[in-house]
């Protein structure tokens, strides 16, 4: 809809820089609100080009063990959807350029009330939504209010999404396409780079939207390889695992947690930037 939103501006800038972008995922409120907010504030400077923020849910059926655990940590620490939106608003006071995408499952939004959620998300400065269990077939009740508010609904494309089905997904897609690089849950197997390349070329025949690739990308090298083929790579479970690695026996953050997570984002970013980009067809 809007040709001039943060997502479009960021991908345009990345194209000018002739490189793929780094999309980072953390779960809002993991391991607690304060730590999570500190990480979030540090992400743009550490090199995140786009930020995905997970809205924790008790039953994250498309996520692997790392993101499941982070979701439960956040809920245990009292995270709510309202607090998650509040984190976006807080970040916007220091960063008005980095696109922010909320990612999660539909039930908390449905229970919050779709209209109220979209209104508050927009006010806070949210740019896009990825709702994992809301395929195009069921998206209507969220799509219309989100569009009216100028928030992009971002859809997933999987290796199982065949050419017959792809147009239905693309007809609703805005912002960018999220290619799920493996048939699996988040943070488990890593994709074969050759397969990612083939999939991205196939998608480019069908859409002009930027393509981000995620699921199973763990190391700076993998991030660079994927980002150079697509328009961006998404790293989630590996970051969330860093958080888990810096918790004590009581689940409390140990000193240096935030610094370590942001240092890892820095490594990913440098690797992605150094790789540049294999120019798309």
């Amino acid at each position: 809809m809007s040709s001039d939103n943060r997502i479009v501006r960021r991908f345009t800038a990345l194209a000018k820089e002739r490189r793929g972008g780094l999309v980072t995922f953390i779960t809002a409120g993991d391991p607690d609100l304060g730590t999570s907010m500190a990480i979030l504030r540090g992400l743009p400077k550490a090199g995140a080009d786009l930020i995905e923020i997970g809205m924790p849910f008790s039953d994250p059926m498309a996520d692997g063990p790392a993101v499941q655990a982070s979701s439960l940590r956040a809920l245990k620490a009292g995270q709510t959807l309202k607090r998650t939106i509040g984190m976006v608003a807080a970040l916007r006071s220091s960063d008005n350029e980095t696109p922010i995408i909320l990612m999660g499952y539909y039930n908390p939004i449905y229970v919050f009330g779709v209209k109220a959620f979209v209104a508050e998300a927009r006010k806070a400065g949210v740019d896009g939504l990825i709702i994992v269990d809301l395929p195009p077939e069921e998206c209507t009740e969220l799509l219309a209010p989100a569009r009216a508010a100028g928030i992009d609904l971002i859809f997933l494309v999987a290796p199982t999404t065949d050419d017959r089905r792809l147009p239905a997904v693309l007809s609703h897609a805005r912002g960018f396409l999220y290619y799920v690089s493996i048939t699996g849950v988040t943070g488990t197997a890593s994709p074969a780079i050759g397969d990612v390349g083939d999939a991205v070329s196939r998608l480019r025949h069908h859409t002009k939207l930027p393509i981000a690739v995620g699921f199973g990308i763990r190391s700076p090298d993998q991030a660079a390889a994927v980002a150079s083929l697509a328009d961006a790579c998404v790293v989630g479970s590996a970051l969330v695992s860093r958080i888990a690695d810096h918790l004590d026996d009581q689940g409390q953050p140990r000193p240096g947690l935030t610094r370590s997570v942001l240092a890892f984002v820095g490594e990913l970013s440098r690797s992605v930037r150094a790789a540049g980009r294999t120019a798309p067809a």
Partner: peptide, 20 residues
């Protein structure tokens, strides 16, 4: 034909499972 019983039912699954 979309699997709805009034408001209820439907197909709320991740994209990977939709073709299945």
């Amino acid at each position: 034909d979309r699997g709805h019983f009034g408001l209820y039912g439907g197909r709320y699954v991740a994209e990977t499972l939709m073709p299945l």
